[in-house]
């Protein structure tokens, strides 16, 4: 009997049938990918493809005692660099003229950015399967397939380096089995010697313009989403400032464990006109919708119906505003 089971297993592997993963294994693996992204030193070139365009970017990523350091150099189109030192980011966009900007990124949330009970719902939203092995950018990778169980999310296919758990390739897949966005290393060197000079910007430094990142977390705005799509739960709520905006913006974040949807709520000041509509860029959908004297903007790497359903059910349930 065992032999039969083994043979069946062999045949199914040969046919590349994906093997469902236990929930705990899936969660552990996803956590490992996220940890590797911040703990592994590597350098390479990746392509990013969406909306029929492909762009190459060079990445240098060093992790040492002083923390995590990253430099991204855009290779196609206007030259741009992003430098990130332990959450402190600088953008070098010379094509945009006065273009060095900085901000303090939030402390890394870790992945999945979820509460323990939400981890348990992962398998309610996705079927997670082991989809065999594939060689990628010179490394042997393990392929993980996340198939959504409803139309509120996209599918994901992840190629993970066997040795370090570094993500080597990732694709988001629509309900029609179309790849809507993907990133993939074409070349990567994991570990080894690392020349720190490669972390320095090469583009000219210009007058800095600060991106305002002041924020107040642990904040109860009183805004809620009445009709959340299944599996989504609130993971963050804050009040923050954005440049060019006179009023603080309420920012709510919901996640299903794999992707997130942000809801931004701002008062429509005198003279500002409401926005209504949808926009799409690769896997990211954006929905703007006025609600009384407030502008609601929803952004998420989800299908349009998800951002719309969320945006259309944002309600104020708090006490009188100050």
């Amino acid at each position: 009997m065992r032999a039969v089971v083994f043979l069946l297993f062999c045949f199914s592997s040969a046919a590349r049938a994906a093997i469902p993963l236990q929930q705990q294994d899936s969660i552990d693996l996803l956590k490992k990918i996220s940890a590797a992204a911040h703990q592994v030193t590597y350098q390479g070139t990746f392509i990013f493809q969406r909306d029929g365009r492909i762009e190459s970017t060079r990445i240098y990523h060093l992790v040492d005692q002083s923390g995590e350091h990253e430099r991204l150099v855009r290779l196609d189109g206007p030259a741009r660099e992003i430098i990130c030192n332990d959450g402190q980011m600088a953008f070098y966009y010379p094509d945009q003229k006065a273009m060095m900007m900085e901000r303090h990124a939030v402390a890394r949330k870790g992945f999945p950015a979820l509460l323990p009970d939400q981890l348990q719902t992962l398998s309610e939203n996705y079927q997670v399967e082991d989809d065999g092995h594939e060689r990628l950018a010179g490394y042997e990778s393990r392929v993980l397939l996340l198939t959504p169980k409803d139309a509120f999310r996209y599918g994901h296919k992840l190629w993970i380096d066997q040795a370090t758990d570094l993500l080597l390739k990732a694709a988001m897949i629509s309900g029609d089995d179309e790849v809507i966005e993907q990133f993939a290393f074409t070349y990567v060197r994991i570990g080894g010697n690392f020349d720190r000079n490669l972390l320095k910007p090469t583009l000219p430094v210009m007058a800095p313009r600060m991106l305002d990142s002041r924020r107040q977390e642990e904040f109860r705005s009183g805004w809620e989403v009445d009709n959340l799509p299944p599996g989504f739960k609130k993971i963050a709520e804050m009040k923050r400032l954005f440049r060019g905006k006179a009023y603080p913006v309420t920012h709510l974040v919901y996640s299903d464990g794999i992707v997130a949807v942000s809801v931004f709520i701002e008062p429509l000041g005198p003279g500002s006109r409401p926005m209504e509509g949808v926009a799409k860029q690769g896997a990211v959908n954006l929905y703007a919708h006025p609600e009384k004297q407030y502008q609601i903007t929803v952004v998420g790497e989800t299908p349009e119906i998800t951002v719309k359903q969320i945006g259309d059910s944002v309600v104020f349930k708090g006490r009188e505003r100050d």
Partner: peptide
């Protein structure tokens, strides 16, 4: 302004977190 929102959103996306949250930002013309 919406791009600021997209960038702000990326910080919280578990999916971006698996690689670098800057992939979309650097590629955004």
């Amino acid at each position: 302004k919406l791009n600021d929102y997209v960038t702000a959103h990326q910080e919280f996306s578990p999916e971006s977190e698996m690689m670098t949250s800057n992939i979309r930002t650097v590629s955004d013309t």
